[in-house]
Design a protein around this nucleic acid. Sequence first.
DNA 1: ACAATAATCAATATAATTATTGAATATATA
DNA 2: TATATATTCAATAATTATATTGATTATTGT
Lengths: 220, 220
Amino acid sequence: MNVRDFKNKVYGELASITKALANPHRLEIIELLAQGPSSVEYIADQTALSIANASQHLQTLKGARLVATEKRGKYRYYSLANRHVFEVWNSMRELGLSRNAEVERLIRDFRTSRKAMESVTSGELLNRLEKGSAFVIDVRPRKEYEAGHIESAVSVPHDELIRKLKSLPKDKQIVAYCRGPLCAMAYEAVELLQEKGYRAARLEVGYPEWELKGLAVNVT
Amino acid sequence: MNVRDFKNKVYGELASITKALANPHRLEIIELLAQGPSSVEYIADQTALSIANASQHLQTLKGARLVATEKRGKYRYYSLANRHVFEVWNSMRELGLSRNAEVERLIRDFRTSRKAMESVTSGELLNRLEKGSAFVIDVRPRKEYEAGHIESAVSVPHDELIRKLKSLPKDKQIVAYCRGPLCAMAYEAVELLQEKGYRAARLEVGYPEWELKGLAVNVT
DNA sequence: ACAATAATCAATATAATTATTGAATATATA
DNA sequence: TATATATTCAATAATTATATTGATTATTGT
């Protein structure tokens, strides 16, 4: 094999992985799977895809060995193959945000409020948790909370937030987190809480990034 | 705009960037541009593409704002838009190597020798340079050396290595580096040097990774 | 101004990707 | 065993990506 054939094969292999990621729905699926293993049905529901279409996209990801699957009962659970997949997604998202004012503008414009929102770093949150001065809420759907969450966090899915307001403390700062930097749920939660007179801030990362730093407790 | 439209736009933007990367030739171009700015002609030559085809791929990368261009005289120089592009490429390559025995096997099989090859980390090289116990050679094409190289390195393009053997020291270890982990030039150089009785090892990273760590000296 | 060089553009044929539809295959539960 | 549920498969049409070719534009040097 000559050098050119070798290069063609190596870059071809890498491009086939990249191609498997190069689709809006599959990127969304990757971010969803970063929250924890999910069934096809749940993935289809969360991404607004038909079951058959979601299944096909999952086959594509599986073909590139970006996801692993496990069958339990009549459900088949998909999950990310390894941390490298999440890291590619992370750097991809960083690139998108850096390169493209468009994406950032989209995110900013989507917030109903224009005022800058206070955010808390992972390190700060750890400090406040030790001092007992923060109350952490996980605003993702309950299934994702159950698949893994920040140790002391309470599950308050964003569509249940209004109903559960009374159970939240007014004397502590409430720190909300969700799926990650592209996810709007924590933004919305903080906004609502502030309107209702709570002290609230957003965790600057989502659960997968927190977990990657080895700070997580998994519930099984 | 509702949540679904918002998500479609954000993931669509990110997928359009990913699509721009999802091609073997464009990945090879990214790695080449990580060595420094290059003209279309040079890129076409190094990647074995026709000029027109290389130009089209560069347009695609430019459209996704992954590369920047500058015209000097009759040449147009392309370069990576920012470090995020290189970091995506890096994590992509890591994912490829982790996920795919195939890629790793290709790289291993391509070496003519089967014996494991000693490699030197960046930190070790810095130590040895301070002690004066290493002699560093850059085996990339001279143009890439000229665009930036390790401070004390000497340019010995891999196709000139045999002719330049006599100028290399036998009493020091010779450390060879090239474009990065997928590049075969340093492997081949070390192999040749060892056959000829030199003490030689491969730097475990390429020039772009070294530069990313802020260890580089740029020549302009 | 004229030739030579570097790069891009435009048109085209081929190949690959995608969403949709309906049928098929497992698995659990009654 | 029958039935409902979860997922995959296969076929299709529409869209998008790719390499090639030859023409065109921009720049340099004579």
